[in-house]
Design a protein around this nucleic acid. Sequence first.
DNA 1: GTCCATTTGTCGTTTATGCAACACATTGAT
DNA 2: ATCAATGTGTTGCATAAACGACAAATGGAC
Lengths: 185, 185
Amino acid sequence: MTQSKTDPRVLRTRKLIMDSFIELSGKKEFKDITVKDITTEAKINRATFYYHFEDIYDLLDKVLSEVLLINLNAIDFEKSELNEASIIDIFVAITDFQKALSNRCHRGYDETIARIIREQLEIIFYGMLRKQQTEENESLKVTAVILSWGIYGASVEWRRNRNESSPEAFIKSAIPFLMSGIEHV
Amino acid sequence: MTQSKTDPRVLRTRKLIMDSFIELSGKKEFKDITVKDITTEAKINRATFYYHFEDIYDLLDKVLSEVLLINLNAIDFEKSELNEASIIDIFVAITDFQKALSNRCHRGYDETIARIIREQLEIIFYGMLRKQQTEENESLKVTAVILSWGIYGASVEWRRNRNESSPEAFIKSAIPFLMSGIEHV
DNA sequence: GTCCATTTGTCGTTTATGCAACACATTGAT
DNA sequence: ATCAATGTGTTGCATAAACGACAAATGGAC
């Protein structure tokens, strides 16, 4: 990703901050967590926090992205193609991620979370599409955008009818549409 | 102890180094552990190691002192007096410490370990004696020295006849001598 | 509303750590 | 014995992090 993170001091400090934030998230709601709380927990100076993050929302962004990435990295994208199985895996990972979040009291930040999920999905879909299509044209990007919004939207709808069906069954019903579309990019 | 350790960076780095050293001690013998190993494990720069420690022997010193101190701190010296019970506690802590060390393959450093134990004992005994005697004279220091050597020597002898008796029983037989001496300082 | 305490972002300075390079010692293989 | 490889301890410089201070913003209590 970024190449400037090679300084071990930076890696250590960021991990301290992020871990402390995750720790505190288990104890109170996001709105009650202050920058001071985090830096006290992490035993770092408050000024150092602002050296790495714009503010606490920037931190939330990056922590969520990282957690989601870890969820998604359980799926080995390097080997898997964009097919029925991988789409189902991704969908399940997203619904799991949202379930974990709602348990951790991150209410009121649905918009932020939605954006993060879509951004990550777009990156992943674009990468997978590019592996299957040798030529790199604009339609790959647009397809990735549409897929990211579509899959995210499906996860929202699935949560709305919770307990009606498993996430696997839910997304499977859209596979014919998705796959034929992907094959004709 | 030292007042300069307040900088959180110093505390973090020293902990990283010491923890890495303890971790490595579980895998190989002391003679096979290099400074490079430690700094690689701790993910700190090698030059930083020398900022905190003279060399690897200095590190060994400080790690052992700290581990022993933690063992001894289980006994609450602030409240306890220098009596039969506390002497037995201290003796047991020392024999436990030595047992733990021999399991961790620190062979060949008996002299170093002996010195560390005696130094710590001397500090502790002097502190306890000073609490009981209001006047602070030279004989307190000498008494602390003799006690530290004596108790350490007793632990050596106990280990030599291992399985003969419990450490508690072993040191108990010296209590009459020790206590009457302490009372007449 | 006002007051008071706490938090937020920012800044300048000091200090600890990272990094690359160095000469030298130690080790191990041939 | 020689040579290469690795470890040691040290140095000068670059940079991240600590610290204290500050004005401004926020949030309760009254």
